[in-house]
Design a binder for these strands. Structure first.
Lengths: 227, 227
DNA sequence: CGGCGTTTTGAGATATCTCAATGGGAGTGG
DNA sequence: CCACTCCCATTGAGATATCTCAAAACGCCG
């Protein structure tokens, strides 16, 4: 379904789909593991798209840069997500670990061949694009319409939903302020100031090093996020 | 492929795919036509998603609103685009004509039924999501990273590529300043001022009523857009 | 002509950015 | 174990792009 048709544009990126197709599972079991340190790249825009990566641990920032170096992070990929899917021979986005991470490297050609006969897998890939699209639209609304405090609150809430362990309202950012800034279309300083404002308001607590954040008043954050 | 699987999130929106599958063509031929005046809605967020719409003429703004009324336009749909596709029973976005428009109303259930057996159509729908995703990411980069003048220049260039007749570098906005503002995450006034700045610079000429714009210096616009 | 919706323009307010300095934590090497 | 360095986060102060509020001009339609 994917590889047979040359296609002029896009690149599919992440899957929330549980990966249960049996032939796919076989692949997963025998796949190569790659470990990354913070700031290491999984792939770059323009690289040959010969692998698809399944995130097992850590956080991967998927982003696009402008010619002058400005960077927009499109999304963060967490364990269980699939990155690097697409219909083109080259990656149109870059992906970089924001913290120590581990990914499984899957052959793109093989995956796409399996998808041709395995309707369940094909459907999962399709759904993953839909999820991706929804997430991107949601971020677009945030960046286009919300103020700094709303953006940061929305980010925290979303991160909590995505990675938060039940009951615990402490989240591990596992990334730098610059990553948050590039996701939200703000500067590092504004992100920092906004976090301290949220702290001052009593909505959050920031632990040592500023990477762990305790969401003290989730209701307040939701309200601020305007969701 | 689409209807059989209840799915918790998204809504696929637009297709650039040439629509040539024969059973689909039959549907198209017998479909109901709906004519819309500017500001009329094609559908609203939360509406039952029983139809998919093929834009034949005009411009349809597809958007999302925040609880307090702020609006982010996700994209404009032009003739040849398909809107309202998705995997959910309800629309998650709203769609409104920005100018007099004409759409063909297609039964969502039927379309999805055909897609289950017609691989070519299914593939086209898949590709349309990919295109949509690429367009949304591109807009996200614009809104998150670019200045007002860069955003407006990028918008004009994109509109020209999308709807511009060969050779003619005059484009018809067919929408209000408020629509452009809500697409780019700016205010009406900033859009207006930015357009006059581009005019003063000699990059564009604005015709009567401000709806037709002549791109006088496309190179300059491209440069400004930072693409 | 008169009214309405829209665009343009102006002037002042403000959120965010920029530039710069300070401080903290982690790692390194003496 | 203590400098020392590096990277990152925080904080401050001033600059600025964009927003807000307000008024005027324009184009369209009855």
């Amino acid at each position: 379904m994917f590889s047979a048709h040359p296609e002029p544009t896009v690149d599919v990126r992440r899957s929330h789909a549980g990966l249960t197709s049996s032939s796919f599972d076989d692949r997963m079991a025998s796949a190569t593991i790659r470990r990354l340190l913070a700031k290491e790249h999984v792939f770059c825009e323009g690289d040959k798209r010969d692998h698809v990566f399944y995130v097992e641990e850590g956080v991967i920032a998927v982003y696009k840069t402008l010619p002058d170096g400005r960077r927009q992070i499109i999304d963060f990929a967490y364990p269980g997500d699939l990155i690097g899917l697409g219909v083109l021979g080259e990656h149109v986005l870059s992906a970089q670990a924001t913290a120590t991470s581990r990914v499984k490297c899957l052959s793109a050609a093989t995956l796409e061949r399996i998808a041709e006969t395995d309707a369940r897998l094909a459907l999962k890939l399709y759904k993953s694009v839909c999820h991706e699209l929804a997430a991107t639209r949601s971020l677009l609304v945030t960046v286009g319409q919300r103020s700094a405090i709303e953006r940061v609150a929305a980010f925290l809430v979303r991160l909590h939903r995505r990675t938060g362990v039940e009951e615990s309202s402490t989240i591990n950012l596992a990334m730098r302020r610059s990553d948050i800034a590039d996701l939200l279309g703000l500067t590092i300083e504004t992100v920092s100031r906004t976090l301290t404002k949220l702290r001052t308001m009593g909505a959050i607590e920031i632990e040592q090093g500023g990477t762990r954040v305790h969401l003290r008043d989730l209701g307040r954050l939701l309200e601020l996020a305007n969701e």
